[in-house]
């Protein structure tokens, strides 16, 4: 009787573990982000480009903006590297298509965030929130998440508004 009980508990535990692993693999696959081009932030920053060179609306709009193919082509029309990924840009340009960059940061609908307010008005550096993205040689494979705690910690430190409706719309 006692042995049977242990066997059942064991079976339940194994089934639970299997279900958990299966769920995790499933979830991680569904959240995985694959960019159309393996963009190297580090190389661009080392080459002397500023963040606003590609994210052109960062200083005057709520969203920072992702570069259009034509903007990439201003530098990459002729080959500047030996990386085969670079050819992909020209292929998109030949087809007159925009590069389908995938979003890595998505704010919830109830939050309003303005890049202009933070970058132009308050003169915050991009690394204050985006940390080491400029030093990464691979695009992020998972969505980047921001917590309200990190926003609040900075708002309290900088004596910015911590009123709920200042950010929640």
């Amino acid at each position: 009787m006692q042995a049977n009980k242990f066997r059942i508990i064991g079976l339940v535990l194994v089934a639970g573990l299997l279900a958990f692993t299966w769920l995790r693999i499933g979830l991680s696959k569904s959240t995985e982000i694959r960019q159309p081009i393996r963009f190297n932030h580090k190389k661009h920053v080392q080459g002397g480009l500023e963040c606003s060179g590609c994210h052109q609306t960062v200083k005057d709009q709520a969203t920072a903006g992702r570069p259009e193919t034509s903007l990439c082509m201003t530098c990459h029309e002729a080959s500047v590297t030996k990386n085969p990924e670079e050819n992909l840009i020209r292929e998109y340009a030949q087809r007159h298509e925009e590069i389908p960059w995938q979003r890595v940061i998505k704010l919830p609908d109830h939050v309003f965030f303005s890049h202009r307010r933070h970058v132009s008005t308050e003169k915050l550096d991009c690394t204050s929130c985006h940390e080491a993205i400029g030093q990464s040689s691979e695009p992020p494979s998972r969505p980047i998440k921001f917590s309200m705690d990190s926003c609040l910690a900075c708002h309290q430190k900088m004596k910015a508004s911590v009123d709920c409706v200042a950010c929640h719309k």
Binding site: P108, H110, D163, C164, V165, H168
Partner: peptide
């Protein structure tokens, strides 16, 4: 809630 400027805020996510 009532915010410091006297406006009555409504936080939908809460």
């Amino acid at each position: 809630y009532r915010n410091p400027e006297g406006l009555v805020g409504q936080v939908y996510s809460r």
